[in-house]
Simulated scan of single mutants.
Amino acid sequence: MTLAQNTPKQNSTVQNSENPPDKEAVKTWIKEQALALGFSDCGFLSVSHPVFAKEIKRLQAWLDKGYGDCLPFLKENHHLRANPALLVEGAKTIISVRMDYLCDKPAPRCVEDDARPNHAIIARYARGRDYHKTMRQKLKQLAKLIEAKLPEWQHLTDGAPFVFRPFSDSAPIFEKAAAHHAGLGWEGKHTLLIHRQAGSFFNLGELFVSLDLAAPNEDNPAKNLCGSCSACIDVCPTRAIVGARTLNAAACIAYLTIEHDGSIPTEYRKGIGNRIFGCDDCQLICPWNKFAKITQVADYAPRHSLDDISLLQVWAWSEDEFLQKSEGSPLRRTGYLNLLRNTAIALGNAPFSKDIITALQGRIGQNPMLDEHIDWALNEQRQKQLKIDCQMICDE
Rank of each mutant, 00 (worst) to 15 (best):
H155Y: 10
T93I: 01
P265H: 10
A53P: 07
A107R: 14
I173H: 13
F162E: 03
R245G: 00
S96W: 08
C70I: 06
L339S: 07
L156R: 14
L378V: 03
D261K: 14
L211Y: 03
G271M: 04
Q361G: 13
L247N: 03
L339W: 01
S48E: 14
Q283H: 14
Y255I: 08
P221V: 05
P330R: 08
R136Y: 09
N224C: 12
A36H: 10
S353H: 05
S329L: 12
S12D: 14
P84N: 06
L35D: 02
F39V: 03
G159F: 04
F322Q: 05
R165P: 09
D280K: 04
L59I: 10
D41I: 02
C390K: 06
T93A: 03
A292H: 08
C394R: 03
H79A: 14
L225H: 01
Y268M: 07
A115E: 04
D355W: 05
M135T: 00
T28N: 13
C229S: 05
A350P: 03
E18W: 12
D355S: 10
R239H: 11
E76H: 10
L45D: 11
T191G: 05
A298R: 10
V235I: 15
E218S: 13
D130G: 02
R124S: 06
A240Y: 12
P20I: 03
H78W: 11
G328P: 00
K75W: 06
K31F: 03
A178N: 02
V88R: 00
K189D: 08
A178V: 00
S40I: 07
L339F: 07
D299S: 15
L80V: 08
K140G: 12
I146Q: 14
G185I: 05
H373S: 09
R136T: 10
A254C: 07
D395V: 13
V47M: 00
N274E: 02
L142S: 11
A143L: 10
G365P: 02
N83H: 12
T157R: 15
N203K: 02
I56Y: 04
P216A: 01
A160R: 15
D299H: 13
T28A: 14
A115S: 11
G273A: 08
I233Q: 10
S48K: 14
L145E: 15
L207T: 05
E24P: 00
K54Q: 09
G335M: 11
P84Q: 05
